[in-house]
Design a protein around this nucleic acid. Sequence first.
DNA 1: TTATAATTGTCAAACGTTTGACATTTTATA
DNA 2: TATAAAATGTCAAACGTTTGACAATTATAA
Lengths: 326, 326
Amino acid sequence: MATLDDIAKLAGVSATTVSRVINNYGSLSEKTKTKVFEAMRELNYQPNSLARSLKGKKTQLIGVILPGVSNPFFGQMVQEIEDQLFKKGFRIILCNAGSDAEKERDYLRMLMANRVDGIIAGSHNLGIEEYQKVGLPIISFDRYLSGEIPIVSSDNYHGGQLAAQALIRSGSKNLQIITGANHPNSPTNARLTGFKDELAKSDLDFDVMEISFSATPNIKGLKIKELLLKQKVDGIFCTDDLTALLVIQQAKALGMRVPEDVKLVGYDGTNFIQSYHPELTTVMQPISDIVMVMIDLLLKRVDNHDCHLEDNYVLPVKLITGETTA
Amino acid sequence: MATLDDIAKLAGVSATTVSRVINNYGSLSEKTKTKVFEAMRELNYQPNSLARSLKGKKTQLIGVILPGVSNPFFGQMVQEIEDQLFKKGFRIILCNAGSDAEKERDYLRMLMANRVDGIIAGSHNLGIEEYQKVGLPIISFDRYLSGEIPIVSSDNYHGGQLAAQALIRSGSKNLQIITGANHPNSPTNARLTGFKDELAKSDLDFDVMEISFSATPNIKGLKIKELLLKQKVDGIFCTDDLTALLVIQQAKALGMRVPEDVKLVGYDGTNFIQSYHPELTTVMQPISDIVMVMIDLLLKRVDNHDCHLEDNYVLPVKLITGETTA
DNA sequence: TTATAATTGTCAAACGTTTGACATTTTATA
DNA sequence: TATAAAATGTCAAACGTTTGACAATTATAA
């Protein structure tokens, strides 16, 4: 691969001049610039980022740690992150942590080794103390990591309330929430709390079913089937849309009708769900805004490591009413 | 951030020794190793990959260029790529090219500048001549890029045949294919050819509707609605599952029943569709195998740039029969 | 105790840039 | 034409490693 020296030789100038052209530093004539650019094109030259970064430039790389990307919610989030960061000249190293804390630690070490300019972290693993001594700008999505790391999330508590209200409005009496197994102080746990508090206002009780985030759809389906068979439920709040789809699926298989026999509210409201399952009433997280805020904060920290940020940034959610609560 | 010299000082050895420990090079006593590892842990040291790569080591980075990641097919593919590459010690730089050839070129330049060890490219953009002079190992998914770049794909032609057979078996007479706008020699175009050839065997005719891959679901929905209204169609092959979902949606809205009034076959058969839309008959691409082959080939080229590879690697597809062709 | 092997150290070049100090040449201005 | 300004050049250090040559020290075996 061509180096700066090759360009210098071909353009008939010194290496310093080439570097000056690249960095637009010092004074340069148009003629020289043209010659150099011409040589760069001819040799298909790309300045070695490794060398540049080593010399002190930023890497323009951001690490993105998420549970995975096959889920429409995180798929859309990654897409947004990529889209917005690209426009600002950053690239992303994608780290699927799954539900494997050790893998997440590995990735964290790698991101440090690669001297990324910053990290966006939004997996579900808890208790990763390493975050405390990463020494890089980090922003967290919807999860507590350590004291200095800002958390951006949507208003989970209010989301839970909206779901409760929708079910109440639709006349449900025997209520159920199906939620991932949450750590008590996890932000997403607030969906449950909001739901509970709102129901309490109307003196309504409800049951809780926990299904691990990492369970396969088949397993989830089975549990839901059991639920629908055993209990007489006529209103379900799923804390994610995919689980809600499984409820529809299982209900149908059991000859129960949605919404006639059982009302349903999901959570997330991705573009995917809005386009391909508009029938589902759901609480929409403003993914694009969330990402915008995360990136804004992250880049502030990238520019100035000591820049003060709040501990929490909470964005509003919105109820999207479909036919499943009609 | 701690450097090799810091470790050397803290461990009371020379920098060379620390490097030797890291690279397990030369002869070293257990005692020294322990001391050094201890110091590395204490300072939370990560060897600077930039410096290592600059000195000649690989970067352990692979560029992944795809249309995006919010689509379940590519979402699952990225997930597979990440999963398999992680196990082999590689990380990925994610490049969403969308349907923007210029962005893809940008990314290509950036990947060169970052000295990635190799590239997996599977976007839909055509006519990007730059691929010819990248000078890095590249494997393409389902798209022709340049003479030396191997293409891995699933058996699109046979997939088209399977879809035709399924519709014929289900008794459809007025057939329709809904496909992305394909370049004539694009591998995915073979889905159409296979479909056509198979129908020809039974002397059946069909109509073609082209909808750009990049059209929004709303636009697609409208076109499908028009189609369903205008023509009397009783069998549709969509060359991707999401479009098939839209057909179901529109048919329902128009009071048409699937499969009673119109049979339907999709394409891709992602985990997502299998789990959340098992009712859909579809042609499954073996994503995991495709990725395995791509990575295998890519890493061969990474180890040996001149290693000879075939031009094409075609993997078998499988029909998954659901109720939409019952 | 001596010969030998194993371990560690010193030193320096190399990887491809950036950047500053400084000198020299070219060009524009008066 | 003299003078200032602009353009380019030379040189070298720095970024954090790796790796080889070689020397010096330490441990082990005979």
